[in-house]
């Protein structure tokens, strides 16, 4: 793994999300707790809705377009809907957000 510093934890509002552009497409970084974050694809497999604009609750996000709910831990759609979104390793260290560069198709800058 190659951890890339993509910003500060404080840049994401609690129960909110921010976007990072990567070679594999837009990745949404979700902050589900004071120091709990997840990274997943920003694109809802249903109609392509931007998940970073959804309401974050528990460890899940609801797509703003048609209310599909995804677990941020597994990427699986919840309830009756079927589908999943890719998830990516993301961690917090000293208040910084570290995203796994390998997983999103980019090596860390030397």
């Amino acid at each position: 793994m190659s951890w890339i510093d993509v910003g500060a934890l404080e840049d994401i509002p609690l129960r909110g999300a921010r976007l990072v552009k990567t070679p594999v497409g837009c990745v949404a970084l979700f902050r589900t707790g004071e120091a709990e974050v997840f990274a997943a694809s920003d694109r809802c497999p249903h109609k392509g809705g931007p998940l970073s604009e959804g309401i974050v609750h528990g460890r899940a996000v609801t797509c703003p377009l048609h209310n599909w709910v995804f677990s941020l831990e597994t990427g699986e759609a919840q309830g009756a809907d079927e589908g999943s979104i890719p998830t990516y390793p993301l961690r917090v260290e000293n208040g910084r957000l570290l995203l796994d560069g390998d997983a999103v198709g980019r090596r860390a800058a030397a």
Binding site: G7, I12, V20, K21, T22, L97, V104, R107, A109, A110
Partner: peptide, 13 residues
Amino acid sequence: RRFQPLADLTLEA
């Protein structure tokens, strides 16, 4: 600033 992406990793190092 909140309306912009947090980071852009598509740009080459």
